[in-house]
Structures are given as C-alpha cells and as structure tokens.
Design a protein around this nucleic acid. Structure first.
Length: 113
DNA sequence: GGCGTGACGTCAG
DNA sequence: ACTGACGCCACGC
C-alpha cells in the first residue's frame, strides 16, 4: 500500500502522534516532531496545532515545550491549557510548569513497548 | 512567486 | 549557569 514510508505529510503524521498521546500525559513539540520523522519540525508542530486544533479537536493542550512548560501567553490559551491539563489530573505549576518526570509522555516506555 | 512568521530546539559565547 | 542568536520547515499574505 503506501509503499512510501516517511513520505506521509508531516502534518498528518504529526497529528497521528498527537492523537497518540495518552490521557493525563504531555509531550513536547520537539518530541512530537521527532516521532513524526522530523527532529527539527517542532515549529511545524506548532503550525499544525494552530491550524488543526479547532476542526480536528486535537489535544493541543497536551503539547508543551521542552521544559514541560506552557509557553502560551496568558489570556491567549495559557489558562485554558492549564485548566484542561489539570482536568486530566496533570499537576501544573503556577507558571505553567509541568513535571515531565511524572506526566511526560514516554513512547516506548513502561507499558508501551 | 517570494518574504515573513511562528505555542521550539540546539549550539556557542 | 544564563543569554543571545540561528536554524528549520510549513503556511499565510
């Protein structure tokens, strides 16, 4: 069938990864990009979230930066993302900092591989 | 058709 | 340890 591994549109692949993020876990933009096949597509992931977060109902709130911190500007989704994460049981600090050691998604980690 | 941008990441100083 | 600058690729105008 496709016979064309890796040629899948980065966007579609990235969406695939984002949808694969377990409930109550968070992943970084770079991580999603890497899993999508582009270790430097972190910014592209951002573009996807902005474009498909609405019509696709992507769990964009489960995606944070490398520090596990919400980089969204306050009043522009920051509070919303924090609320959604807390709703999933994720402990979010006052600065939007999340403990990746506890809530960071580990693909291939215990239970997945 | 070309330029700038962007919810990041990595290297260097 | 921290700050600054660059890179990277897709998308909008």
């Amino acid at each position: 069938m496709n016979g064309k591994p890796g040629v899948a549109p980065f966007s579609e692949e990235a969406v695939r990864i984002i949808l694969s993020i377990p409930h109550g876990r968070v992943a970084s933009y770079g991580q999603v990009a890497r899993l999508a096949g582009d270790p430097r597509g972190a910014r592209q992931v951002v573009r996807i979230l902005n474009t498909l977060s609405g019509p696709r109902s992507l769990p964009w709130h489960r995606v944070v930066n490398r520090e596990g911190r919400i980089v969204l500007p306050a009043g522009h989704g920051f509070e919303l993302q924090r609320k959604l994460l807390r709703d999933e049981g994720v402990a979010v600090g006052p600065d939007g900092l999340i403990d990746l050691a506890r809530f960071g998604w580990r693909p291939g980690g215990r239970g997945s591989i």
